[in-house]
Design a protein around this nucleic acid. Sequence first.
DNA 1: TGGGGCAACTGGTCCCAACAAGTTGAGCCA
DNA 2: TGGCTCAACTTGTTGGGACCAGTTGCCCCA
Lengths: 255, 255
Amino acid sequence: MTTASRPLYAQLADTLRAKIAAGEYEPGSKLPSERALCETYSASRNTVRLGLQRLVAEGLIVASQGRGYTVRRPDVLVYNASRSEDHDRRISAGVDAWVQDIREQGRNPSQRISVSIERAEPHIASRLELEPDALVLVRRRLRFVDDQPWSSEDSYYAYEVVKGTPIAEPGDIQQGVIAYMASMGYVQTRYVDDVTAAMPNPEQVNELQLEPGVPLLIRTRTGYTDDEKPVRVTVTAMPTDRNVLRYELGGPKRG
Amino acid sequence: MTTASRPLYAQLADTLRAKIAAGEYEPGSKLPSERALCETYSASRNTVRLGLQRLVAEGLIVASQGRGYTVRRPDVLVYNASRSEDHDRRISAGVDAWVQDIREQGRNPSQRISVSIERAEPHIASRLELEPDALVLVRRRLRFVDDQPWSSEDSYYAYEVVKGTPIAEPGDIQQGVIAYMASMGYVQTRYVDDVTAAMPNPEQVNELQLEPGVPLLIRTRTGYTDDEKPVRVTVTAMPTDRNVLRYELGGPKRG
DNA sequence: TGGGGCAACTGGTCCCAACAAGTTGAGCCA
DNA sequence: TGGCTCAACTTGTTGGGACCAGTTGCCCCA
C-alpha cells in the first residue's frame, strides 16, 4: 500500500476528495464536523484540520465558523477578452464591453470607479515605456455582478498625456476613453495580453471578498498605436471561482 | 491598532511578507528557522508554522525539510498562444510551435508523448459535441524545459474520426496533425480559448513537480471547422511560477 | 403566540510535547 | 588526505489540551 507511507492528514484529504468527486457529498452539502471526523478516522483534531485545510486550499470546500464545511458550488461567468475592445460593439451598446458581456448572460453588472495619480510600479512603467517612478493616472474599477464583487480592473495612462482631460475625472466614460485617446492622436490598433494567475494577497482577499483557495486570474493588457507606442496598460484580476476568460481566434471574421 | 484584533499567525505572515516585499529577504535567501521565529515573536511553533504556511500558500516562499524556508526566485517563460496555430510558422520550423517558442527564448525544450483511448469526460464530450462516454483519442504531452517539467498538454479527438490514422500512433507528429486532419476534410479555421486557473490536485503536483502554493493556468482550446464542427479539444496546464500565456490581438497583421 | 435568551453545536486560535525525516558540516579514522 | 560517521541542526507529522467566536434552534417566559 502506498497509503501506508502517506501522512494521515493526506490520506484523510484523499478520502474526502474522492467522496466529493464521486458525488457522495454534493455541491452545497455539509461535510461531517471536525470532531466527528476525529472519531471516524481515529485522528487528533490537529490532523483532521490539516486534511480539511488542504481541501480548502484546493478550492474544493469552504469553511464557515459555527456552520461547518460545505462543498463549493460553482458559479462562473465568461469574460470575452478578444471582443472587449471591439469598437462598433462598444459604441452601439453605449456601455462598457464587460457590462454588455455580463448582461448577455442574464446578470446584473455594476462598477465603482476611482481615479488617482501615482508613481508607476516597475512592471507598469516598463510596459508604458516610462522612466521608473514616472507619474501615471490610474483608473481603478471594481466590478460587481448582482451586487457581489466580481473582478477588478485598473487602467494606467502616462500622466503627461492625459492630465487635464476628462479621462482624469472619475465617472464611467469607458465607452469613450479609447475614442478620446484616439482624438488626441493615440490610436490603439494592437493589443498584447499576458495572462497568469497567483494566489491573492490580503488586500485582494478583502476587496474581492475571496474565499481561501481561490486563485486570481490576472490579465495584463498593453495597447499600442500603429507606430508601436504603448498607450495604456490594463490589469484585470478575476477570481477563478467566478470567471472564465475567453479568446476567440481566427475564423472568417478576422481572416 | 488594527493588528490587535488580527490573529498572531496573520501578523507574523504580514510582517514577513512586508520584509520580503521590501527586499529585506532577497529571492533565494533563507528566512530564520521556525524556532528562531518562535523566540523573536514570542509564539509557539504551531503558530509560527501557521504564518509560514500562509506565505507558502501564496507562493512567496518554499519550505524544504532540513534546510529551512527560502524566498522563491521567479523563472517565467512566455507561451504565445495567439500564434501557436500559425500554419506557415509551424511548417517552416518543422517542429511544434511551443518548441519553437521556447528555443527563441534561449532554452532547451523537449517533450514526452503518450497516446491512449478513453471515454470522454463530460466537459470534453460537450466541447467535441459527442455523447457522454463516447470514445476519444487522447494525445498526452508532457513538456520539459532544460529537462525540468514545465507544462502538460492533452489533445482530444473523436475516436471515430482518427482511428487507424497516424494521429493515433505515439510520436511527435504535431507539425503535421492539423494538416493531416485537414486532408481528411477537417479544416480548423477558428479557435476558442477558455482560460482559467485552479490549484493542482496531487496527480498534477506529482506530474509537474509543483511546489505548494503554485496555481495552474489552464487553457482549454476548441478548434472548429468553417461549418462550426468541433475538431479538437486541447487542455494545457501551465504552472504559473514558470509560465505566462500571451495573446497578441488586432494590429496590421490581422485586420 | 411572540420574542428573547441560553445551551449546544460549529470552526478559529493558540499552547505544549514528542518523535520522524531530511540536510549539513565538523571531526575522526583509515 | 579521502572518505565516512555522526551530531546538530532543519522542517514534517501527530498527539494532547484549552479557550474564543460565530450559528442555530430549542425552550421558556411574558
